[in-house]
Write a protein that binds this DNA or RNA. Structure first.
Lengths: 185, 185
DNA sequence: GTGCCATCTTGTCAATGGCAAGATAGGATT
DNA sequence: AATCCTATCTTGCCATTGACAAGATGGCAC
């Protein structure tokens, strides 16, 4: 809402979110420590509580940011295939966001701002699938979107989990395009 | 039922693993507490450490069990489509196992027993794809397997995360079969 | 019976999340 | 200007947890 004003710290809320992204990339979202974030930002251990209430509050804000960022990436994609590639690219590039977004037990899934952001992501995904040049029924479009989402999401999470064999290569975009094509053909 | 014995539990290792499955279904694998498991099993707070070393040790054992269980489900499937359905069914039915298996930051991914079990799962998956009646090259088979794995894994994780819209229905097997068919056609 | 050893307990410590109460600062009200 | 107001941040505290160390227990080999 109101822009960050220069108080004691200046921009603590933003600084904590940025520190959280770094920390999550290092230790994962579950092992995130509010006190560690406070240390990184140079404030006392209870400062984060004021801005986010508790750890779930901070992760809720992070997840909402993530869904918005993802929505932007998806609407900029040219077609369904590239939207899928963009999805995987987002997951790998913004790993911290992605890992929080799909772990609703870590945040408040009923948060209004978060639900809105998630809805924007979903709409972007569906609109990409709807532009497919097939005379499919709407119900089929739903399932097509779900299939596209599933394969992109699955590849992304498997990549992040390090579960894929080495021969897949080290470029997630290329490998993802190769895999996603199998659905779109 | 074997009540809590005076000193030696009798089958503490198994009891702790069973308690861990319950606890993970309740609070997720990250919020798992060794001391809580000890209380559930009626032993002292340090007893789990003897059997598993630390929390990662316990989750390593759980993950290995899970990969073995999954491998069994996959080899019993008739074709690729049903293997995918079995994969999703495993994730939903044995949610606790599944949630640990693909979170390697929680356990020791270099554990020998775990690697062996994971390899058995992978082999079961690939062998299903290889039986497809297509004159595809081996390299294509690899990619086909990866695509099948991705879409099944993606659907399963999205289902578990509660990310899917309600109109997908409440039966994961039926919905999964509908989605997976889009790859196999 | 004796000794051995896996099993389990008790005790302890640092780290964490969360709460409560207080301190601080910048603007608003009068 | 003096005072109030409120968001911001600090200090202090407590229960819980993971991990470690040292000791207690009991089954089992000999």
């Amino acid at each position: 809402m109101t822009g960050p004003r220069a108080y004691h710290h200046g921009d603590l809320r933003r600084a904590l979110l940025a520190a959280a992204l770094d920390a999550i990339e290092e230790v994962g979202p579950a092992a995130l420590s509010l006190r560690d974030l406070a240390r990184r930002a140079g404030v006392s251990h209870a400062a984060p509580a004021h801005h986010f209430g508790d750890k779930a509050g901070l992760l809720t804000a992070l997840a909402a940011q993530g869904f918005d960022l993802l929505a932007q990436k998806l609407v900029n994609a040219d077609d369904v295939l590239e939207a899928g590639v963009a999805y995987v690219d987002f997951a790998v590039t913004h790993r911290a966001y992605f890992e929080v977004m799909f772990r609703p037990e870590l945040y408040r899934a009923d948060d209004a701002e978060l639900i809105a952001a998630r809805e924007r992501s979903g709409a972007a995904l569906r609109s990409g699938v709807a532009t497919l040049p097939t005379g499919a029924a709407p119900a089929d479009t739903d399932r097509d979107a779900l299939a596209a989402w599933s394969i992109a999401h699955g590849f992304a999470t498997l990549w992040l989990a390090g579960a894929l064999p080495e021969r897949v290569g080290d470029d997630p975009r290329t490998a993802a395009r190769d895999v996603l094509r199998r659905l779109a053909r």
